[in-house]
Design a binder for these strands. Sequence first.
DNA 1: CTCCTTTATCGTAAAAGTACGATATAGTAA
DNA 2: TTACTATATCGTACTTTTACGATAAAGGAG
Lengths: 117, 117
Amino acid sequence: MLYRNFTIKVFIMLNLIPEPCCTLEISGAEQEKLVRMFKALGNPIRFEIMKFLVTHPGCITGDIVTFLPIAQATVSQHLKVLRQAGWIEGITSGPATNYCLHEANITWFRQKVGAIF
Amino acid sequence: MLYRNFTIKVFIMLNLIPEPCCTLEISGAEQEKLVRMFKALGNPIRFEIMKFLVTHPGCITGDIVTFLPIAQATVSQHLKVLRQAGWIEGITSGPATNYCLHEANITWFRQKVGAIF
DNA sequence: CTCCTTTATCGTAAAAGTACGATATAGTAA
DNA sequence: TTACTATATCGTACTTTTACGATAAAGGAG
């Protein structure tokens, strides 16, 4: 990333690309997290899971498996992606796991998108 | 989708999944468009292109190719994905193409995300 | 302890995405 | 017309994602 920023400055000095009109306040780990959140919701099944969790907060994995026309292993995999991206959080209760939206991260996502674009 | 909605209702009647706490106002073509927009920005190179367009509105493909460490063909492909997703629009001017953000779609994206999550 | 329920993980096959060089297209200039 | 510039598309390797069945792990009941 340091190399990239240096390259940009050289290119601007040489007039190879136009002057930037403004600056952006995202890069590094924050940007990676944002891209990961975008990627996670860029899948129809995972979007459907998120919608289900909005209307069924605190439900367990089995409810989602019953709701969706795909195998339990696949649902578990999608939940892992959503969890690692920060969209949801799972709370273990006995052998089951209750899932709900990660409100703080969702708010962060909205704020970042609003600030950048 | 009709079959899915029917299945959901049957499951709810049979108490196989908990009652929904609320309703959602997205489905069908709108949902597909939203997922496509999420997916398009779920790639680090395309996110970088979007950032570049924020700070360099109206620049041409060549500027982005100069800026990024990837081949011209790949940049063109990424621009196509962003265009088809609705994030950007390209205006042909002579042999070149000027790209800028699709403000209306971006506003729509922010509003939808805010309304759903 | 055993048995059952619930969920996560493993291994793997099929599908989709990403990257590149080569080529095609389309506009401008001479 | 030819030559040049800028970009899009084609064909094709390579990588990643997605889906499944099978299995493992972990808690609760008896």
